[in-house]
Computed example of a mutant assay.
Amino acid sequence: MRKRYERINLISKELSKEAYKAYAGKRDYKRAVEIYVLLAESMCVPDDISNFAKNMMGRLSKKIDENT
């Protein structure tokens, strides 16, 4: 179980970094939203990453509203 937890934690962090790069660097909001929804809604994702993803989804919704 410990290996599984560590693996999920590592993958979640990598996904979070990828989503942030899509949001901040590439301005690919669609990709960022897809990843953040996955991180926020999955039950196996650690709480700190899930909370960060929910926060970033709020920021993304504001950015998308500003651009439309």
Rank of each mutant, 00 (worst) to 15 (best):
M1L: 07
M1R: 02
M1N: 04
R2T: 00
K3F: 04
K3N: 03
K3D: 04
R4P: 01
R4D: 07
Y5A: 07
Y5E: 13
R7G: 05
R7A: 05
I8S: 03
N9P: 01
N9S: 07
N9Q: 09
I11T: 09
S12W: 09
S12L: 07
S12F: 12
S12N: 04
K13I: 11
K13P: 03
K13D: 14
E14N: 07
E14I: 14
E14C: 08
E14S: 06
L15T: 09
L15Q: 09
S16N: 11
K17T: 13
K17Y: 12
K17F: 13
A19N: 09
K21H: 12
K21M: 13
K21L: 13
K21F: 13
A22R: 08
A22H: 11
A22T: 14
Y23L: 15
Y23I: 10
A24Q: 15
A24M: 14
A24P: 07
G25W: 14
G25H: 11
G25I: 15
G25C: 14
K26W: 14
K26D: 15
R27T: 14
R27C: 10
R27S: 13
R27P: 02
D28C: 06
D28I: 13
D28S: 07
D28R: 05
Y29R: 04
Y29C: 05
Y29M: 12
Y29S: 10
Y29V: 12
Y29P: 09
K30E: 12
K30R: 06
K30I: 15
R31G: 00
A32Q: 08
A32I: 08
A32M: 06
V33H: 01
V33S: 00
E34C: 01
E34I: 06
E34V: 02
I35F: 02
I35S: 00
Y36H: 08
Y36R: 07
V37R: 10
V37W: 02
V37P: 00
L38W: 03
L38F: 08
L38H: 04
L38V: 10
L39Q: 13
L39E: 14
L39K: 08
A40E: 15
A40M: 13
A40K: 09
A40Y: 13
E41S: 10
E41Q: 09
E41N: 10
E41I: 11
S42K: 02
S42R: 10
S42Q: 06
S42W: 11
S42L: 11
M43P: 02
M43C: 07
M43F: 14
M43D: 15
C44P: 05
V45C: 06
V45M: 08
P46Y: 15
D47M: 09
D47P: 01
D47C: 01
D48P: 02
D48G: 02
D48N: 11
I49Q: 06
I49F: 04
S50K: 11
S50W: 07
S50I: 09
N51F: 06
N51Q: 06
F52H: 06
F52C: 02
A53H: 03
A53K: 04
K54H: 09
N55Q: 03
N55F: 09
M57F: 11
M57N: 02
M57P: 02
M57Q: 04
R59I: 11
R59D: 13
S61M: 05
K62L: 08
K63P: 00
K63N: 03
I64W: 04
I64S: 00
D65T: 05
D65F: 01
D65W: 01
D65Q: 03
E66G: 00
E66Q: 05
N67W: 10
N67T: 04
T68G: 00
T68A: 00
T68H: 00
